[in-house]
Simulated assay, not measured.
Amino acid sequence: MANTRPVRGATHNAESRRFNLPQVEADGDWLDEREGIDGALTPLKTTVTVERPRTIISRNASPDVPFDRSINPYRGCEHGCIYCFARPSHAFHDLSPGLDFESRLFVKPDAAMLLRAELQKPSYVVRPMALGTNTDPYQPIEREWRVTRSILEVLAETDHPVTITTKSDRVVRDLDILAPMAAKGLAAVCMSVTSLDPKVAGTVEPRAPHPERRLKAVATLSAAGVPTYVSISPVIPAITDHEIEHLIERAAEAGARYAFFLPVRLPHEVAPLFRAWLDEHFPDRAGKVMSVIQSLRGGRDNDPEFFTRMKGAGPWAELLGTRFRIACRKHGLNKDRIALRTDLFRAPAGPQGELF
């Protein structure tokens, strides 16, 4: 019998928390470029909803992350990474963190305009802006909507520092913006490469670009003078942890200067989705995977506490950290730190300023 399950990360639409927020649907149906490769699969159509927020910069005071502000051009992500910690956020739209998160997306087309307005405020104090902290700013929808590029145009115009996290080689499309910014010390890019095994990558993050395409993007960015990180996050015990050393080696060969990793996190609705995914794709080791994850998380599926939630704890966490540090030292990564400049920033001109 032909397989009729849509090619997505989640195996089903999990029950969602309900917040009963209003939605406005827009005409934006599109299909991922991989759609239709296997004619036996029934495609799951992706819809796009236009979102009109009042502000675009999100603030945080978490001690676990190295930035205090970020912009997310999109909600939801068609890459379909089963481990994505942003999945539960779809509950705020009364949608499931499962298949809905991957196929019912939200776009903020006014992002650049909102950003310009916020940067014009006399009270604004510049710090590096992070893109890609929740969902990928270069997922396939960026191909048509180009919201991420419009944001970069404003940041480049104002000499505002920016960091980008993505798992898409589409980022090289914007080298004409990023390379000049990097030359001024204003831009850095982090590429996420979770596994070099195409079969594993194809189930863990089914609609993200091939790992080799991502490494090629790192090489292209590095050759253009853009400082690059490689994130091998998340490390999934008994599935991807054996690749740590090889991933670091390949990152260094591609020209990356920095690397980091995080053990897999399973907050809120992600845990049952991840368990269902394990049962379907790795039934032979599902028990072992969850046993190690729980050993990293104090006996639970997830540890929400600051300082430990990103690192894990216990022997497994120590072993992963030791292997990572040895590999980085061997291949010359993390010798220094990227310090983006903030002294070049100039606020965009307002309507009055443009008259003179």
Rank of each mutant, 00 (worst) to 15 (best):
I71N: 03
H12R: 11
D110N: 03
P22K: 03
A61E: 10
L31V: 08
L95M: 09
D32K: 09
L21F: 06
F106H: 14
C77V: 10
V107R: 14
A91K: 02
E15A: 11
I71G: 05
D38Q: 10
D29I: 15
R104G: 03
F92M: 10
V65P: 02
R54E: 15
S89I: 04
R52K: 07
K45G: 15
R17D: 06
L44H: 12
T11M: 09
L41N: 09
H12D: 11
C81A: 02
S58D: 11
G28E: 10
T42E: 15
A26T: 10
V65M: 04
P63M: 07
A14M: 00
I82R: 01
P97N: 09
T42L: 10
S70V: 03
A26E: 06
R59N: 12
L115D: 00
I57K: 00
L119S: 00
N72S: 14
D94H: 04
G36K: 13
V107A: 15
H12V: 03
G36R: 13
P43T: 15
F85L: 12
E78H: 04
P73D: 04
I37P: 03
G80A: 13
S62R: 13
A86F: 01
M113F: 00
D68A: 13
V65S: 03
K45Y: 15
A112F: 02
D29G: 12
S62V: 05
R54F: 11
V48I: 13
R75Q: 13
F101M: 09
P66H: 13
D68V: 07
R104L: 12
P63D: 09
I56R: 02
H90L: 09
G98L: 10
L119C: 01
N20V: 13
F85I: 13
L41Q: 15
S58A: 14
